[in-house]
């Protein structure tokens, strides 16, 4: 404990706040989400409206949509994902740096929607761990904003420091066995998105 020093006068005069590292990290993460707009079909139009000035996603700090996955931490799957496109979507997801979250926007990406078909992925949770599902065809921009607020609440509950200290594998790149088969189990209460390989269950 020898490294702990009493707070000096300069600090007390300027003021300070006591908080937990987790809370500070989460506060930063949840208020600066950078969406990766995976606009695959009609839902993409609503996504654009959401980011635009009328609905103004900037109020939630998530308006900085980047078209490089390397700069993003929130993938918004807006549209119909086909099996032919699934490989590309998975590569984009893997290219995003951790921590990262996924919103399935619209019924198509949530469950395949009306495309009960051989060519359409019946829910992107077959290939990606989804955090928030948004119903609607297409969902109104306010519904997606609501999803972003829900995601912010979820990020608040994460424990990044604990995950890091416990050696939880934070690198969910292509090395992780994030191959999800069971839908709707991807909502993790842990601070990480490690989705288990088939056959293994969470403790």
């Amino acid at each position: 404990m020898g490294s702990l020093k009493p707070i000096d006068d300069a600090t007390t005069q300027q003021g300070f706040m006591a908080t937990r590292v987790d809370e500070l990290i989460n506060w930063g993460r949840k208020n600066s989400l950078w969406p990766m707009p995976l606009g695959l079909s009609c839902c993409g139009i609503e996504l654009m409206a959401m980011i635009g000035p009328k609905f103004d996603l900037a109020r939630f700090g998530a308006e900085a949509a980047r078209f490089s996955p390397r700069q993003c931490d929130l993938m918004i799957v807006a549209g119909t994902l086909t099996w032919k496109m699934a490989e590309a979507a998975r590569v984009i997801y893997d290219q995003m740096p951790d921590p990262k979250w996924v919103i399935a926007m619209g019924v198509c990406s949530s469950s395949g929607g009306m495309y009960d078909s051989y060519s359409v992925v019946q829910g992107v949770d077959m290939i990606l761990p989804v955090d928030v599902y948004v119903p609607g065809c297409p969902p109104r921009p306010d519904a997606v904003i609501d999803a972003i607020m829900k995601l912010q609440k979820k990020i608040e509950r994460e424990q990044p420091l604990k995950a890091r200290l416990s050696g939880d594998n934070l690198d969910h790149g292509i090395g992780s066995k994030t191959f999800v088969r069971a839908p709707n189990t991807a909502v993790s209460t842990r601070g990480s998105h490690a989705v288990l390989p088939p056959g293994e269950s969470r403790p």
């Binding site: 099996w83 490989e87 051989y118 292509i174 066995k177 191959f179």
Partner: peptide, 21 residues
């Protein structure tokens, strides 16, 4: 005679994913 939900629609994706992994 092809079912509208397809026959193993995820076959190619799974093969690709496995190979990549």
């Amino acid at each position: 005679d092809f079912p509208h939900q397809g026959i193993e629609p995820d076959k190619l994706y799974n093969a690709w994913f496995k190979q990549r992994f």
